[in-house]
């Protein structure tokens, strides 16, 4: 191309909109990290449903339906944990290691827009995962979400925000992508077993169960299950919700102090 052609190349002077960037970035995140990644589709959609069906029969809580009523919110909660730890925390560490954060930092894209797009993509995926688990529970085991829809969405949003914040702590404190991924799995998997998500913590000795209730994961699982499946009013869990807000505030404080964009 000649120099003259370059100089007159059709480039309208830009009207930059962070909102438009947010939508475009979120869409691309979804396509690149989910839609084109067969493993990701398998692990994030097929595996939780498979667990629901198998564990509902295997858990031995009297009936498969009772077990399923326990597991639907528990499995959704486990997806909340992994959205925060893997989906946001380990991803940020990976992006930083691959120098993608540096590259983006040099453009007019606001770092918050980039971060929000990552969260928004994971929340879209989380909504798909929750819908799939609720549908599977309803169709296979006749488990229904009876809670007030606003209360259910509210507690889910609070839990998701808390675990996204806790995830960013991994992104802030852990230096390499590899150890961030290790941290994410070390947190997600045991927490799912120790937080009343996969198995009832009442099966543990009472002091252990009490100790486990100090975990934000247990607090979230119990509140979410109580509100969504057992139809309890949201204020029953005001204490747990307050605790989640504190966890979130602490996590944000640590991330704000230590997170390095570049």
């Amino acid at each position: 191309m000649s120099a003259a052609a370059l100089a007159t190349a059709p480039l309208e002077r830009p009207r930059r909109s962070q909102f438009r960037m947010l939508l475009a970035q979120t869409r691309m995140n979804f396509v690149w990290y989910f839609w084109r990644d067969g493993e990701m589709i398998f692990w994030s959609l097929a595996i939780p449903v498979f667990f629901l069906v198998v564990f509902s029969f295997a858990l031995g809580m009297g009936s498969a339906q009772r077990a399923s009523a326990f597991l639907v919110p528990g499995l959704i909660a486990a997806q909340v944990f992994s959205s925060g730890f893997w989906g946001v925390g380990a991803m940020l560490a990976t992006f930083r290691e691959k120098k993608l954060l540096r590259r983006v930092y040099l453009t007019p894209l606001n770092p918050w827009t980039f971060f929000s797009a990552l969260v928004l993509y994971r929340m879209t995926l989380l909504a798909m995962q929750a819908t799939l688990l609720i549908l599977a529970g309803a169709l296979v085991f006749k488990v229904h979400v009876v809670g007030n829809p606003f209360a259910v969405l509210g507690i889910l949003a609070l839990g998701a925000a808390t675990f996204v914040a806790l995830g960013t702590v991994i992104g802030a404190l852990v230096k390499t992508a590899e150890s961030a991924n290790n941290f994410a799995s070390v947190l997600t998997v045991p927490l799912s077993f120790l937080s009343d998500a996969y198995i009832p913590i009442n099966n543990f000795p009472a002091p252990v169960a009490h100790a486990l209730r100090l975990l934000p994961s247990t607090q979230f699982v119990d509140a979410f299950r109580g509100i969504a499946i057992y139809g309890e009013p949201i204020w029953h869990y005001a204490g747990w919700m307050g605790a989640l807000v504190l966890w979130m505030a602490g996590a944000i404080a640590v991330s704000a102090r230590y997170f390095r964009w570049i």
Binding site: L11, E12, R13, P14, R15, R16, S17, R20, M21, A24, Q25, M28, V31, W32, Y33, R36, D37, V104, T107, P108, L109
Partner: peptide
């Protein structure tokens, strides 16, 4: 898993193109 075209378009949105 990003295509050349998608990256150019996405980075274009950063500049309002």
């Amino acid at each position: 898993k990003a295509t050349v075209g998608e990256l150019l378009r996405l980075y274009g949105t950063y500049y309002g193109l």
